[in-house]
Design a protein around this nucleic acid. Sequence first.
DNA 1: TGCCAGGCCGGGT
DNA 2: ACCCGGCATGGC
Length: 216
Amino acid sequence: MRILSDIYRRLFSFFGPQHWWPGDTPFEIAVGAILTQNTNWGNVEKTIQNLRKYQALTPQALHTMSLQKLAELIRPAGYYNIKANRLKSFMQCFMNDFHGSIENMKHRETASLRETLLSVNGIGPETADSILLYALGKPVFVIDAYTKRVLSRHGIIEYERPYDEFQMLFHESLKRNVSLYNEYHALFVKVGKTYCNKRKPRCEACPLETLSVKNK
DNA sequence: TGCCAGGCCGGGT
DNA sequence: ACCCGGCATGGC
């Protein structure tokens, strides 16, 4: 799949570096990954600010806070009852399995780490991989709705194919490189928001407009 | 004003 | 193994 490198080059020269992930610490990034599930990042920003304002953006604070209080604080992110539970589940795992230490997580092997994250209620493949890549610096490609939309619109793979199939494409076609994966995923979100989403089915100005699927 | 956003779960076929 | 309803706020 030479075309995946081609797409990356086009996106990067067109948009430039994206400076992801928005978040000051690995722990905040993990929290943000859960909060942003099917949710506009702007709402997540408000929520993060809210948590910070109440000094609730630390492992200890989140772990000890009541479910009701947490739900109240993360309200702007939407799905706040569900997400409060999901954050609590993650904290349970984070405290029990890693003693509240990101370093402990980093030391674990990537495959087993992914298993552990996926076993947490409320953490699916995208959230797990976002945490692995953006919080822990593991070379795992993140697939999201934008990635699927862009690839399927250009006839590279059908939108309905399972997550792992999309991910395999990237893992087999690109070097296992953290900064490359980091930047590439962010660029998918960028091009998706700008040119390739449900509101903008056509994209004349899109840098991928002239892609030929021949050099797959 | 309605539709959409950086998903995931649980229950039903 | 799929399919689908539910979850919810704020922006455009």
